[in-house]
């Protein structure tokens, strides 16, 4: 099955290759969108959630997407994460035209190219941390049981929670749960990590801890797209994109990103959560 899907993706590649108007291929370019729009129809009213977004994201960037609720940042995130399809415009991920893909093809893209971290963790209940992390591997091409365990344990180790592998989500604190979710996001070695308000449900200290994990991953070369409405949290990223009314209103580099590990040292010592 995956072979068949990949074949279709290749064909999309070729379509794009023929198009000579495309800008010079940038080695570092991970994804870019061209006039991406999304319109919802609610009864008789048309809601323009996204009114034409052009953005380019390069490999190795740590981007914070900000905006108030209703600004279109969540819609943009859904499109970026291939969870939803755009109404018009183009989206190329890894030089693959994603915007015209079928549901089945998008499923493979989600599995192979993108790692998700959600606000409320979205771990499967009554399933161990290890099994939760293994989840994306279950749905990818054949991967032996042993290999799955190894990769999942490695991912848990990367986020520093390997000793909790056999715990169920309800036995873990919020911060630990989010780490498991991050481990799940990186286990399949995606091209970028998409984090939707990953600190929204966490207290300040735990939020900074989670941001420290993201920064550590970033240092290892991972591309991270972080959606947040908290300015404090956005300051840990090195590029800030702001949304308002379905458009990008600012896109600038963060000249001096804060360091989460440094901030943690400044915080007063609290009771250790574990």
């Amino acid at each position: 099955m995956p072979n068949k899907r990949r074949l279709k993706i290749c064909r999309q590649d070729r379509v794009w290759d023929v198009d000579s108007d495309m800008p010079e291929l940038d080695k570092n370019r991970l994804l870019y969108t061209e006039h991406l729009t999304k319109t919802y129809t609610m009864g008789d009213i048309q809601v323009h959630a996204l009114r034409g977004v052009d953005v380019t994201i390069n490999t190795g960037e740590f981007i914070a997407i900000m905006g108030a609720s209703g600004s279109g940042k969540t819609t943009f995130m859904n499109l970026l994460g291939c969870l939803d399809k755009p109404s018009s415009g183009a989206y190329f991920l890894d030089e693959i035209a994603v915007h015209g893909m079928s549901d089945a093809e998008l499923t493979v893209i989600r599995n192979q190219k993108i790692g998700y971290v959600f606000q409320s963790f979205y771990l499967l209940p009554r399933t161990t941390a290890l099994e939760n992390v293994e989840l994306p591997l279950l749905y990818c091409k054949k991967c032996s049981l042993h290999e799955r365990h190894e990769k999942a344990m490695h991912a848990l180790g990367t986020v520093g929670i390997a000793e909790r592998a056999k715990h169920f989500p309800n036995q873990l604190s919020g911060g630990q749960q989010q780490r498991v979710a991050i481990a799940r996001a990186i286990v399949n070695d995606p091209v970028f990590i998409l984090a939707d308000e990953p600190t929204g449900n966490l207290d300040t200290r735990t939020s900074i801890e989670v941001m420290a994990v993201f920064q550590a991953l970033h240092k290892q070369g991972k591309t991270i797209v972080l959606v947040t409405h908290e300015n404090d949290i956005a300051q840990y990223a090195d590029r800030l994109i702001s949304f308002r009314d379905g458009r990008i209103i600012s896109d600038k580099a963060n000249p001096a990103p804060r360091s989460a590990t440094e901030d943690l040292k400044l915080l007063p010592k609290l009771d250790e959560e574990d």
């Binding site: 499923t107 599995n111 771990l123 990818c140």
Partner: peptide, 8 residues
């Protein structure tokens, strides 16, 4: 969740 991480 399963669909998001790649279940068809």
């Amino acid at each position: 969740i399963r669909m998001a991480v790649g279940a068809g």
